[in-house]
Design a protein around this nucleic acid. Sequence first.
DNA 1: AGCACGTTCACGTGGCGTGAGGGTCC
DNA 2: AGGACCCTCACGCCACGTGAACGTGC
Lengths: 122, 122
Amino acid sequence: VNDKGRYMISVAAELVGMHPQTLRIYEQKGLVRPTRTAGNTRLYSDADLERLRLIQQLTTELGLNLAGVEMVLRLEDQLSRMQRRLERVEREMNERLRQVEREYKRELVLWEDPTLPVRTRR
Amino acid sequence: VNDKGRYMISVAAELVGMHPQTLRIYEQKGLVRPTRTAGNTRLYSDADLERLRLIQQLTTELGLNLAGVEMVLRLEDQLSRMQRRLERVEREMNERLRQVEREYKRELVLWEDPTLPVRTRR
DNA sequence: AGCACGTTCACGTGGCGTGAGGGTCC
DNA sequence: AGGACCCTCACGCCACGTGAACGTGC
C-alpha cells in the first residue's frame, strides 16, 4: 500500500466498507481529518483509512458510540506515548549506568598501571 | 465519608442521583459489582458510589454509551498502572545509579588513603 | 401487613447510519 | 452534459433510561 495514497470519498468508503455519508459525519465530529483539494474535495490518506478501520472496529464490533470512540482514541494515544516514554527512560538510565561503570573501571586501571599516562588526582 | 459504608440500592441511587433500575442495569453489564446480603439485597460501598459517579460523568456529561464506558474504565485503569510503573522504574534506576557511584567513590578513597584497611586488588 | 427489595417486560427518546434532494466543480 | 463531489434534511433502528407489574424477604 502506497503511503502517499490519496483517495476521494467514494473510493475511501469502498476500501473500508463504509457509507460515504458516514465518513463525512466522522469528519464533522473530528474523528478523521482528510485533506481537501482546491475544489474542496476530501482526500483520504492511508493513515486516515487505518484510523477509519479502527473506528469501525470500535463501533461495529465493540458497540461504542462516537463520543466513546473519541475518548478511547485519545486514551490510546496517551497510553502509547507513555509506553514510549517508559522505554526511553529505561534506555537512558541503563545508558547512564553503563557510563558510570566504564568511568569507574578506567580510573582503577589508571591507578594500577603506571605505564599509562598520569591523570590529575582528585 | 465512612469507607465501610454499605448502602442498599435506593439509598445508593439517591446519593448519586440515579434511578435504582439504572444501577441494576449497570451491574448486569458488569460496570459495578455491589455485594449482596444473605437475602440477595445489593449493598453498595463508597468505592461503588465513586465508580457510579464516574460512570455518570462519562455518560451524561461526555455522552458515552455503556460499551464506551466499559472500555474507557479499562483503559484508564491500564493508564494509571503504567503511570505507577513508570515512577517505580525511575525510582529504582536512580537508586542503582547512586549505588554504583557510592561504590566507585569508596574504591578510590581506599586507594588514596593508606591508613584505611587494605582490600584485595583485582 | 406493609414496604423495599428482587426480576422481567414495555414504552419514549435520542444517537447514528442510510438515503434522497439540490447545488457546484471538472 | 454527465458524474461525483459538496451540504442539508428526513426516515428507521437500536441503545438506554424510566416506569409498571408481580413475586419475595424483613
